[in-house]
């Protein structure tokens, strides 16, 4: 199985005759014999994912890298973090996915009202299964724990990904002050309850 290692802003993907899916155009260099092909509609997630993607307006464009060798992947000088999944589920903002190994399934999930407020479209991507997923962040990724009885509130613009059993809800701080332009600049926040990990980046989109 392909092995992913993050080196600050560059992801090293070692292939041994197998394949992985990565964001289109993210290859910066490679050694060995590797082929790059578009993963097709739905990012290889099948017809259902493709249709849902169309409905949601989610734009995730992936390519399949297959062969033997090492591929260097990077995008826009963003920081790279590798997350290990053991029969787990990771929810990621689609534009933050850099690469996923075989054995992980990608699907599109509707994000509802949250997507509208943060201007990121109506859907996020869920990654399920066992394998490695490399995610991008503007600045180093920060992992925050969510425990029962200790809800976590984050800015929708810094939210990157989350794992575990958490419920997400949108908190609105809109009051008469916002209407007269005297608000604190944080009209909406995301509130997480349950058990899990939430990943944020130190920059607002």
């Amino acid at each position: 199985m392909a092995v992913l290692t993050a080196d600050k802003k560059v992801l090293h993907a070692d292939l041994e005759g197998d394949s992985l899916r990565a964001a289109s155009g993210s290859m910066v260099a490679y050694t060995g014999k590797v082929e790059f092909k578009s993963a097709g509609m739905g990012g290889g997630g099948g017809l259902r994912a493709a249709i849902r993607q169309r409905v949601a307006g989610e734009s995730i464009s992936l390519m399949t890298c297959s062969g033997a060798g090492r591929v260097y992947l990077a995008q826009n000088a963003m920081d790279v973090t590798v997350v290990q999944l053991q029969n787990d589920r990771l929810t990621v903002e689609s534009e933050h996915i850099l690469a996923v190994t075989d054995g992980l399934q990608l699907d599109v999930q509707f994000a509802g009202l949250r997507g509208m407020t943060s201007g990121q479209g109506l859907a996020t991507t869920t990654v399920t299964g066992t394998g490695q997923c490399a995610i991008l962040s503007e600045g180093p990724l920060i992992a925050l724990a969510v425990n029962p009885g200790e809800p976590l509130v984050v800015d929708p613009d810094v939210y990157v990904a989350g794992t575990g059993q958490t419920q997400m809800s949108l908190v609105s701080g809109v009051s008469w002050r916002s209407l007269v332009g005297e608000d604190g600049g944080e009209p909406f926040s995301l509130r997480f309850e349950g058990q899990g990990i939430v990943y944020i980046q130190p920059a607002e989109r």
Binding site: K9, S24, A29, M63, N76, A77
Partner: peptide, 20 residues
């Protein structure tokens, strides 16, 4: 795939690549 054009570098030396 967005990788239609590639530079193939061969020989003895060092190539410098940026992360962007």
């Amino acid at each position: 795939s967005g990788e239609a054009f590639q530079l193939h570098v061969s020989g003895h030396g060092t190539v410098y690549v940026q992360a962007s």
